[in-house]
Structures are given as C-alpha cells and as structure tokens.
Amino acid sequence: MNTMEFERDRPIFLQIKSAVKERIVRREIKKELPTIRGLAVELGVNPNTVARAYRELETEGIIGSRVGKGTWVIPEALQEIRKEMIEDIIDKFLNNLHSIGLDSKEIKEILEGINDRDI
C-alpha cells in the first residue's frame, strides 16, 4: 500500500477503506492493523482521514479497537469481505463483456470454455 496513488477526485477515506479491505483479503494484514499515524505517514495523508476510514470499518464490523490495545481484524469479517470483493470483480467482468456487445448466451459460452482450461 505504500506505493498507493490516490484518485484525487474521490474521497480519500473511501480509498483507504478499500485498500485496507484488500490487504485483509490478501492476508497482508492478518491480525493487527497499522497505527493511524503510521499509516498516515506511509500514505502521505492526514491522520484524521485514516481515523475516519478506521471508524467506518469498525462500524461495519470489519475491525475492532480498544484504546491502548490497537486495532485488529475481526476474523468473521474475512469471508464477508471476500464475498463482497468477488461480487465486485464479477460485476466488473460482466459489465466489460456487455460493453463490447456480448449477450448473456455468449458470456455463458465463454464461461463454460474457461472450465476446460487450467485455472
């Protein structure tokens, strides 16, 4: 995440949220999250922006925190984020295929073709 380039035309805290979720799914963050200040310095953003992202992740039940004990991933959340990300990827994939003019039948055929290949 340290080479992360933000899209400046979208709220930064939303991008930090997605980046943290991605790191959780990739298992780059296993339990403990970086400190707010540590992540702020790493990303070159305001600590309050990181704090806002963490706050929302906490409300969504993805992370937990306690003063003096840091911030950690809630294990049950992993499957949930994973599902969410898979859906996102599939949505994008289908949208791309639709946008170049494929209909549902053609897409199904392609998907069946993938089954035969090594995945």
């Binding site: 400046r8 709220p11 930064i12 990303l43």
Partner: peptide, 27 residues
C-alpha cells in the same frame, strides 16, 4: 498538498469562497 488537509478553506480576494471537509468536497 491536498491529501494532507482534512478541511480546505478557499480564499479569493480576501474572502472565503468555499470551505469544507476535503473528502466531502471531493464527493
């Protein structure tokens, strides 16, 4: 510098013409 600012105040000819949380303005 814009990612540093939690809130941005825009000044023009001595007056504030826009003021808000940076992420809210982006949104």
């Amino acid at each position: 510098a814009e990612t540093l600012f939690e809130r941005t105040i825009f000044l023009m000819d001595g007056s504030v013409i826009l003021d808000g949380k940076s992420d809210d303005l982006r949104e």
